[in-house]
Design a binder for these strands. Sequence first.
RNA 1: GGAGGAGUGGCCGAGCGGCUGAAGGCGACGGUUUUGAAAACCGUUACACGGGAAACUGUGUCGGGGGUUCGAAUCCCUCCUCCUCCGCCA
Length: 443
Amino acid sequence: MLDIKVIRENVDLVKRAAAAKRITCDVDRLVAVDQHRRDMQTELDSLRERVKEDGQRVGLLRNPKSEWYKRAIAQGKTDAEIKAEADRVQAELARIKPKIKELEDSEGSILQEFEQLMFTIPQPADPEAPEGKDESENVEIRRVGEVRRFEFEPKDHVRLGTDLGIIDIERGVKLAGSRNYILRGDGALLHQAVLRLAQDMMVARGFVPMVVPVLVKEEVMYGTGYFPTGRDQAYLCERDVLSLVGTAEVPITAYHTDEILAESDLPLKYCAMSTCFRREAGAAGKDTTGLYRIHLFDKVEQVIICRNDQQESRRWHADILKNAEDVLGTMGLPYRVVNVCTGDLGMGQVQKFDIETWMPSRNSYGETHSASRFYEFQARRLKLRYRDGAKKMHFCHTLNNTVIASPRVLIPILELYQNADGTVTIPRVLRTYMGGRERIEKQ
RNA sequence: GGAGGAGUGGCCGAGCGGCUGAAGGCGACGGUUUUGAAAACCGUUACACGGGAAACUGUGUCGGGGGUUCGAAUCCCUCCUCCUCCGCCA
């Protein structure tokens, strides 16, 4: 959400920014509705002021003990005259009342439209985000790690996992439909191992671990920017008006909703491991094989809430990016970092770095992490504020990044660490979570 | 799920139809005093939207929504949340 005052004064800029993001929104309509809304408020305010003042007068005129009443008597008015005046004013007010009600009703619908339009205006991208139409124009920033060359014919993770008895896609689909899977034995353990490793690293870096709701209220989805635009990507529990989150970013970022924090509280660093639910609507036929694009996965997410300062926000962005890179680094996985172009940015993101990890079966880097900063876009929607030393109120800045998402990350792990005999060597850092074992063998 | 009770400012807590955005206390902040600190005393201490260059000013907000009334924190309806008891379940 942007500040309506800023939109009013920068209509062209907002339009251009939306165009750069390839997001359609009706800025002109918003500005018109805003004007309408303000006119209406002015009118209503003055009407209400009158009701308030005159209503009070009625009370005083009807109260023989009031100063007003005594003064009127002193001026030579009779009780009957005073009563008549009270009746007159009261009758007049009674006539205004339906008019106010009528105005209030139309104000309601205008406010509603205003809010809806506000929700569709994207946060302008930062100048550091490259201009581009879609993900094909993302810009690679760096590559880290050696891509392994195989001296034998490598298997993809599905073949490998199926042969080892640790991945069972067929039965996953039997139970839950396409894009579902079952991990068993060392597959299940490996999944939990990477999550634990990631969480332990974050805790060591001062992030507060949390366990959060994954079924949340609509306002939380709106607040974080996933609604209304991304509504079709979410599983809804309509009977209860709750939505399953696609990431723990949602509940963590919304944690301090409606609060006014102290500047000294900031930055707040949180992480949470949670299950993530995604409908993958519109992705039919895309990435259909294996554990890449699935409806349900687990993820450790990191979120930072910091002061309203773009430079500081940038620094934390670099920080959370490094956290994720370190997780991949410690597991010895080769990856590259990509600066996401404007056309591939979401509603509220000002800049996003994706980390893509090398996946032999795809013969390319595949996205495993996504680090975004929002400036105050989410904070405005969530009313997430703080007071500075001079007691001035500001919206916070928010940022988030994946720490690890599994089973997607199991793709590079299994494929890159496979051996000619079909076994998989367990990366050293994961062994403590796997009973100290060195390899995964057929079960 | 059934029966009761309760939701007021950062916190505690008054108010139960009018001049109450809300007494009092605590906390926090600023000041006086002090070598410094404490104590004491004085003052300040919500948010949103609108108007205004600003000073300032109008409106709304006492869990949410609706209603009664000239006028509602106060009365009525409804929803939500929390507490207690009973039932059920992990």
